[in-house]
Nucleic acid binder design. Structure first.
Lengths: 229, 229
DNA sequence: ATCACGGCGTGAATAAATTCACAAGGAATT
DNA sequence: AATTCCTTGTGAATTTATTCACGCCGTGAT
C-alpha cells in the first residue's frame, strides 16, 4: 500500500512534468524533479517506484511516458465526478479554481441550502438542493465531495454524502468529520495552516542567528555532493 | 524543537477547546480531545507536553487554562499582521474567511496588480499596488503573506515578499516556491488534495471487501481498551 | 576495447513520528 | 486508612518515512 505522502507528491510531480512538457523538455532526471518539488532525488525515485515506470540511467525519465504512468496510477480511467457542497465565497472560488482543470476529475454538481442559488448555474455547474443529493449522485455517479459549508453544518452534510454512497471528501470546513471506515477524508484547514505559518515564521526569526547557518551548510552540501558518489 | 505536525494539532486542539468552552465544559480528558481531533490520547498528551501546561490526573485539563497555554505557545502576544496577495475569487474568499477570526492574527492589507482594485476596500481590507509593498509592510509591521495569485506569478510575488522582510508565506498557488532559508512556506495545494481524495476514495472502495473489517476491529479495540491498562 | 562518468533502482540504515505501557497521584468508596 | 479507579506525563518500543550508499548499466571519451 502506497503512502498518503507519496500519492500527494506524485500529483505534484505530474504537474511539474506537465510544465516541463509545455516548455518542450523531453526527459528529466530525479534530481531535477527533486529540485522543482523541494524533495531529494532519492525521494523522487522512491516515490516513482510506486507507479512502476522505470527510467533510464542515461536519460533519466521520459517526460511524457512518466506523465502517462503517473496518470495510470493516480487516475480512474473512467473518470471520477465530484460534487461541491456550499456555494458561499469559498465554494465559488473552489468552483472557479477547478473548472476545466482535469477532464477526468471534475465538479459536475453543486449543492446548497440557499433557495436563491438552487436551479442556477455557476461556473458551468448546476446548483441543486441537498434534498436532491441521492438522485443527482446516482444519476451522475458522483462519489467525491468537496465540503465548503460552515463548520456547524459540516458533519450533517458529510453524513448525507456518506448515505449517498460517497467515498471521498475534501473538507474545507474547520470541523473534524466523523465518517465510517472506507470513506476517505482529506482536510484543508486554512486557519490551522495560517497559524502554522505564524508560528514558524516567528521561530524562523528566532533561529535566524544560529541555526540558519547550519541549514545553509547542509543544503549546500546536499547540492554539492548530490545524492551519491 | 517542536514538530510541524504538533503545531498544527495544537491549533486544532485550541479550536476544539473553544467549542467546548462555548458549551460550558470546564475540563476535558486527553481521550476526549483525541476523539474530537481524530487522534489518540497518547498523541494529545505528547503534543501538550510542548506547551508546558500540565493537567490533573483526576480532572484532566482545565479548558480555559489549557486554551490560554496553547495561546501563549502559538501566538505572538504583540499580534502578527498578514497581507493577502491576489484578490481574485480565491483571494476574496480567503479574506472573508479570515476576517474577524483571530484578533492577533489578521489580514491588514491586500495587494493586486489590477488597477480597478487598488485603493478599494474589500471586507474591511484596503487594496494596494504591489509597488507599495515595502512601505505598507514596514508601516504595519507585516511579516506574513498569503499568496493567492496565479501560479505563473507566484514566485515573483514571493520574492517581493522576501525582499520586504516577510518571514512566512501561506501559499495557495500550485507552484513550489523557492525562498531563502529562514522564510517558512506552508503550501495549500487544492489540486493535490483533490487528487489524493480521488485516489484514496478508489482505493477505499477496493479495500472495502477485505481490509475494512480488520480496520473496524482495530478501531473498536482501540476504543474499548482505550489507551492503556 | 577499455575506462570513467553519471544516473537508476533498491536493500539497508537512519531519522522522525506515533504508540505502548507503566509509575505516580488524586478522588471516591469501602 | 486502605483500596480501587481512572487519569496524567513520559521513557522505551514500535512504526512510518526518509535518506544513504552501492550494484548495475548506457554513453562518450580515450
Amino acid at each position: 500500500m502506497v503512502s498518503h505522502r507519496t500519492v500527494g507528491r506524485l500529483s505534484l510531480y505530474r504537474r511539474l512534468l506537465n510544465g516541463l512538457a509545455g516548455q518542450g523538455t523531453r526527459n528529466v532526471y530525479s534530481h531535477q524533479l527533486a529540485a522543482m518539488a523541494g524533495a531529494t532525488p532519492a525521494q523522487v525515485r522512491r516515490d516513482l517506484m510506486a507507479v512502476g515506470y522505470m527510467g533510464s540511467s542515461t536519460h533519466g525519465y521520459d517526460v511524457s511516458e512518466l506523465t502517462k504512468s503517473i496518470g495510470n496510477f493516480l487516475d480512474d480511467q473512467t473518470g471520477q465526478a465530484a460534487a461541491l457542497f456550499g456555494i458561499g465565497n469559498l465554494g465559488r472560488a473552489i468552483l472557479s479554481y477547478f473548472t476545466g482543470r482535469r477532464p477526468n476529475l471534475s465538479i459536475v454538481a453543486a449543492f446548497d441550502v440557499d433557495e436563491n442559488k438552487i436551479g442556477r448555474v455557476i461556473h458551468g455547474c448546476r446548483c441543486y438542493s441537498v434534498e436532491e443529493l441521492e438522485t443527482v449522485a446516482r444519476e451522475n455517479d458522483i462519489r467525491l465531495g468537496i465540503l465548503a459549508v460552515p463548520a456547524a453544518a459540516a458533519q450533517n452534510v458529510a453524513e448525507n454524502m456518506v448515505r449517498a454512497g460517497f467515498r471521498g471528501i475534501l473538507n474545507f470546513a474547520p470541523a473534524p468529520l466523523k465518517v465510517p471506515a472506507g470513506v476517505y477524508v482529506e482536510d484543508i484547514d486554512m486557519t490551522m495552516s495560517l497559524e502554522k505559518v505564524a508560528y514558524f515564521a516567528r521561530q524562523g526569526a528566532r533561529l535566524q542567528a544560529a541555526e540558519i547557518v547550519e541549514q545553509e551548510n547542509s543544503r549546500v552540501l546536499e547540492t554539492a555532493k548530490g545524492d551519491q558518489q
